[in-house]
Design a protein around this nucleic acid. Structure first.
Lengths: 209, 209
DNA sequence: GAAGACTAGATAGTAGCACTATCTATTTAG
DNA sequence: CTAAATAGATAGTGCTACTATCTAGTCTTC
């Protein structure tokens, strides 16, 4: 198909498709002339994937680019893909962490060790968790890392359940994409469900108060 | 204290504090002269709260403004505060939803009803959940709303557990702030924990593959 | 085979966000 | 008295994700 049809079936404007081509997140079409190219179903699928990662996952275009590169890199072992996806989901620390954050980092490290989790020392989620802990302390809601224990338990249960649903018979590319999409979409879905549940419990608890 | 000290204790630059004052997310100081004002601990605390909502919760300044307005509005009943916070956490739908999203919305509505949850019909999380469902379908990973059931169960457990920890003896302002901070910070913490757990399970499952 | 629609690629412009910098007229501190 | 600090106003910056325009060339349809 030509670019106008690709635009139609994907719902992405021609100008934006060209932008994605320039940015390298969408591969070039098969050229038939100097100013003509053909695009296939793979392009349409890739476009949908880009939009889902951005709209549902909230990833920046640069992050999408990283994730897609990881998906396309056949040399990348499967067990490292999740790390790349999580790194892209960021946010990555930009400046040197404050001293209280550094301290919280070791608390987080201890928690992870106590849980027996095998996680890269450079996982951005470590920093995110430390930031959350520090936020509580800075606002005067004390509490050590132990307040996270019940959350960690549930998170572990969720993650374990999830990975068992990954299709194992399919090719590497399908598994990889499935893992990434699952990570991003189910995270968004769970956050939404948590908010709905909170609203329900809040209504029940505070109604009339 | 004067603005330079407020800047020092909060770690926020003077220029940014002035920006927040202009934006109305930080209340004005007590004026002692045309170009002099005094700020108190409440200002420092408010600044910390703003930074946590933005940095940990990922809220925009406009969203922070909405949340703070809700916290400060004494007429707002407690059971509606959560809705305001969730609305600020967005993202709110900008355009008319696609037809498949509208369809997914009713699926979500059914799920909520089946769970017996009492949730506003306008809750943005409904839309977010529908978007996530549609994302799966658009990418070819079918599955109805029933794939969300185990997630919903865990989300309900989490939300229920959380609200029981809200201090009931404190004043309204403290409870309200506690609820908002808990919503935002524990959501971030749980997402981070889920990623850590995923990385662990992924490493265990795919290592050597 | 001519007119008009379409296209690739290049370049430049836009809108929104969260600051950041500079300036003026003060006020304060030493 | 003088140097530093301040409130408030205005303008500028850097980044992101597009969006618009332009040119030279290519289909398509009558």
């Amino acid at each position: 198909m030509r670019i106008s049809e690709l635009s139609r079936v994907s719902g992405v404007s021609i100008a934006t498709i060209k932008y994605y081509l320039r940015a390298g997140v969408l591969g070039p079409g098969r050229h038939t002339a100097r100013n003509q190219a053909q695009y296939g179903d793979a392009h349409a699928h890739r476009l949908r994937l880009i939009r889902v990662l951005m709209d549902v996952g909230g990833l920046s275009l640069a992050a999408v680019s990283d994730v897609l590169d990881a998906i396309d890199d056949n040399r990348l072992p499967l067990h490292r893909l999740m790390g790349v996806a999580h790194h892209a989901l960021g946010p990555h620390a930009t400046a040197a962490p404050a001293p209280d954050v550094t301290e919280a980092q070791s608390d987080v490290g201890e928690l992870i060790e106590r849980l027996g989790w095998k996680v890269s020392a450079r996982a951005p989620a470590r920093g995110a968790l430390a930031e959350a802990l520090v936020a509580l302390r800075r606002l005067g809601y004390g509490g050590g890392v132990e307040v996270l224990a019940p959350y960690a338990e549930l998170a572990g249960e969720l993650a374990g359940r999830e990975l068992t649903t990954v299709a194992t018979g399919a090719g590497r590319h399908e598994v990889v994409e499935h893992v990434v999409v699952g990570t991003v979409v189910f995270e968004a879905a769970f956050v939404a469900l948590r908010r709905l549940a909170q609203e329900h419990h809040s209504a029940v608890r505070f109604a009339g108060g």
